[in-house]
Write a protein that binds this DNA or RNA. Structure first.
Length: 492
RNA sequence: CGGGGUGUAGCGUAGCCCGGUAUCGCGCCUGCUUUGGGAGCAGGAGAUCGUCAGUUCGAAUCUGGCCACCCCGACCA
């Protein structure tokens, strides 16, 4: 076990928060509910951004940027959406400070600088974007609009946790406008597929694709799709959402266009997003009691090289021998660090990089120089092997791929072992308490039943799965007919 | 926003009940010995005890106000 890191079994929540801090990903700032994302954590986010951004571009989207502030009247135009977010909005009411006459050296809000109309700090950007699209769209020839933005948003949360829920967070939000219902629905589903692919191929986290129940749907959407991931403590994490907005925002913002047939119609919309929350998901899906385990395809650092030396002379010899190796690894596109500090001992460094989840560690000492070998350790299984220095780049590249697929396989196995079909309410409650994870159960489709189950068990319907849910049965709670099993879980 | 708790060195803490300027560990600095799994020894620096006021010869300690943060609940990606 890592020094001063609680084990997952002892206290999962504490383990998580300590790990985030000790692995240098992020820390709490002095601003309540807000975090500082440190360079190591931010590099991870940048890697995620890069992969996602490419996937967005490959599916025809372009990036743009819309303002942080949304005038209140604009914000409230789509009522359901505004209502849904009202309780967690930060508002700008003034635009100037002045010296406080009663407290020298202190500032106060200048009461004379009150804004005529308050500005809402965006909790999401549908309002400002649809208000803008109105100006851009007249004809079917202007459609579709396929825009994404990378931005920060603010949701004034009561309780926050690093990455998982913070008052300000970073995300991307796609906002598209289409001429037909079918095209918009396809877009929402396409982006859900993109998210699922990203989660599985890059994060190495298996996800269930599904639709949200009425109770869990995004306010203002006709349909909300999501990907749900399972964490090691048996709780679910919503890892991405994609909304089919119907014509709700077009109606609210009066965005009409002339069809080919010369008629006027409202535009069909979608929006979709993933946030820095995914970092929390990566941590909780893979890491162990020794620290982070990061998937190679997103890790800020792929390989760390630790020299074992007694003297400066010895270090010089090692450096000379290892430099070509570093060059080759970098040429192969890998991020490599040679940790030649003489202020820390090798053992300390080993522990440190395990804590930080670097996928592959190479140790090289005098013994290796004699034999032309390197000691290669993989973080996911902690196995060590001695390899020939020659051809090491090929071996490392293959090893990284193997770690990537092993992480996914491991997480998938965990999910399968923690997905349980239940047919009675007693069993439902017992599985939730004893085992956790996803519970597949029949549900009568009503919000009342969903709410009662939530009140009694704290479990919510994570999604109505898109695949493999067709099977008639009786609702575990009410006994009424059900068209298919849905996914229940306690969730973050 | 309800209920509970805590503020003492960069971090974690002792001292508070019973007033006399502060304990220990980690980290940091210097030196020597060490280095294939979190080194050892010796020396050293670092705190107006959250904040404002009150009581007192004297306040980390007692009293009151304020501020901040944490935990539990309701709300949430």
């Amino acid at each position: 076990m890592a020094k001063e890191l609680p084990t997952r079994a002892e206290d999962y929540a504490q383990w998580y928060v300590e790990l985030v801090k000790k692995a240098d990903l992020a820390e709490n700032s002095d601003v309540r509910g807000c975090m500082v994302i440190k360079p190591y954590g931010y590099t991870l986010w940048e890697n995620m951004q890069r992969a996602l951004d490419k996937m967005f571009k490959d599916t025809g989207h372009v990036n743009a940027y819309f303002p942080l502030f949304v005038p209140k009247s604009m914000f409230e135009a789509e009522e359901k959406n505004a209502e849904g977010f009202a309780k967690e909005c930060a508002i700008v009411t003034h635009y100037r400070l002045k010296n406080d006459p009663s407290k020298p050296g202190k500032l106060m809000v200048d009461p004379e600088a009150k804004l005529e109309e308050e500005l809402v700090v965006r909790p999401t950007s549908e309002a400002i974007i649809w208000n803008t699209y109105k100006k851009w769209i007249q004809s079917y020839r202007d459609l579709p609009i396929l825009i994404n933005q990378w931005a920060n948003v603010v949701r004034w949360e009561m309780r926050t946790r690093l990455f998982l829920r913070t008052a300000e967070f970073l995300w991307q939000e796609g906002h598209t406008a289409h001429a037909t219902r079918q095209e918009a629905e396809q877009e929402a589903r396409l982006m859900l597929d993109v998210y699922a692919e990203f989660a599985e191929r890059f994060m190495a986290v298996p996800v269930i694709k599904g639709r949200k129940s009425d109770g869990e749907r995004f306010p203002g959407a006709v349909d909300t799709y999501c990907i749900e991931a399972l964490m090691q403590d048996g709780k679910a994490l919503q890892a991405g959402t994609s909304h089919f907005l119907g014509q709700n925002f077009a109606t609210a913002f009066d965005v009409q266009f002339s069809t080919k047939e010369g008629k006027l119609d409202y535009v069909w919309g979608t929006s979709w997003g993933v946030s820095t929350r995914l970092i929390g998901g990566i941590i909780m899906a893979h890491s162990d009691d020794d620290g982070l385990i990061l998937p190679p395809r997103l890790a800020p650092l792929h390989v760390v090289i630790v020299p074992i030396f007694r003297s400066e002379e010895e270090l010089n010899k090692i450096t000379a021998a290892i430099e070509p190796v570093i060059g080759d690894l970098r040429k192969a596109g890998l991020s490599v660090k040679f940790d030649n500090r003489d202020t820390q001992k090798p053992g300390f460094k080993f522990a440190e990089y395990e804590l930080k989840g670097v996928p592959v560690r190479i140790a090289v000492g005098p013994r290796d120089l004699e034999n032309g070998t390197l000691e290669v350790a993989r973080r996911d299984t902690k196995q060590k092997q001695v390899l020939k220095m020659e051809g090491i780049t090929t071996a490392i590249t293959a090893l990284l791929e193997e770690i990537q697929s092993n992480l996914f396989a491991r997480a998938l196995k965990f999910r399968e072992e923690h997905t349980t079909r239940v047919d009675s309410y007693e069993e439902f409650k017992r599985v939730l308490d004893d085992k956790g994870g996803f519970v597949l159960a029949h549900w009568d489709g009503t919000t009342e039943t969903e709410q009662r189950i939530k009140d009694e068990t704290k479990a919510t319907i994570r999604c109505i799965p898109l695949e493999g849910g067709q099977e008639t049965g009786a609702c575990v709670y009410s006994g009424k007919p059900s068209a298919g099993r849905v996914v229940f879980a306690r969730a973050y």
